[in-house]
Design a protein around this nucleic acid. Sequence first.
DNA 1: CCTGTATGAGACATCAATGTCTCACGTGCG
DNA 2: CGCACGTGAGACATTGATGTCTCATACAGG
Lengths: 192, 192
Amino acid sequence: MSHVRYSCLMPVDRDHVLRTAAALLTRKSTATMDEVAKAAGISRATLHRHFAGRDALVRALEALGIAECEAALDAARPDEGPASDAVRRLVREIEPSAGLLAFLYTENQLFEAEQQNAGWTRIDDRIAALFRRGQATGEFRIDLTPAWLTEALYGLLASGAWAVLEGRVAPRDFTHMIVELMLGGALRREES
Amino acid sequence: MSHVRYSCLMPVDRDHVLRTAAALLTRKSTATMDEVAKAAGISRATLHRHFAGRDALVRALEALGIAECEAALDAARPDEGPASDAVRRLVREIEPSAGLLAFLYTENQLFEAEQQNAGWTRIDDRIAALFRRGQATGEFRIDLTPAWLTEALYGLLASGAWAVLEGRVAPRDFTHMIVELMLGGALRREES
DNA sequence: CCTGTATGAGACATCAATGTCTCACGTGCG
DNA sequence: CGCACGTGAGACATTGATGTCTCATACAGG
């Protein structure tokens, strides 16, 4: 794994293919292998050489999404300082992956009875733990369960990604919109 | 259109088929016509007699979703009283349709360049107007745009519907969880 | 220069879902 | 009773995506 072999005109960059596929599937979750290949600038044959099939591609995207989520969680230091600041850091870190997350979030509805990737459970637990910590310190209200807050955060990330995609929200406002709604809600606060 | 003809054992109830389909597609958005027919307790042939194809079925579901949303908006009286109470009424009224809405919300990602049903625009406008009214009266903060609040409400409704479906949230808490997060956010309020 | 390797293009079979059709059955109605 | 109507079951062709294959090409390295 130390030396990479470059051979032809364009030595297919697995990571580039995955990111292109993620961007496409975020917009059109039913895109065909042919469309994914064209979007990545490679032929369908080559795409199929690197990912055995559509399933394998989605699984690879899932693995990428999990990896990015965990990296975001690590970078957000969810155990340090006020929980609200940690939530803000988390959303900021996770923003670049929001589109991919939105795709996987809806795609996961397909994983019905099957065992879902253990990575998601780990991420769910870490995020729920953050909200639980905030409740323990008195920062967060306790009538909203950590599980729901976690789920809601996913939903808002997906909504935010789509809203930006369709031009209903400015990209630069993404983090602010999500964090402020998530933490403060729509009601105007009495100056505290 | 005044008298209905009953003919055979089970005179297919169009509304029943639609609601069964909605419930199924909420759980498995890729269900086939065969699965939809089985879920509704009719044969694929009969299903196809009532809905020309999958497209027609989805369109019918869209029309149903729009109708239920508008009915919920009417019942919620969005122009009366405090805007926050109106939001609460709206979520309560829309709760039974949340599953269908969640399906349509993700399905709409497919309506890429096509003209989306004008009904959604009308609903978007009415909900956005409610948030705008709340901002005008000083109830709602003004740094979150009405368009984003509307989008976020859709996202939370979908998240809530799925969370209930998977048992992560108790059905009876649905409205409370959504309204409280939407309006108040996760932060604990200073006693106001 | 020659070989190895990965690609692009395209042909091909396969499979699942769809849409269409026919036919037999059972019920309501005349 | 007999007719009309809607249904269920199943056969059938069609379509679109998928997975597999072959072959020509182009570059890298020896």
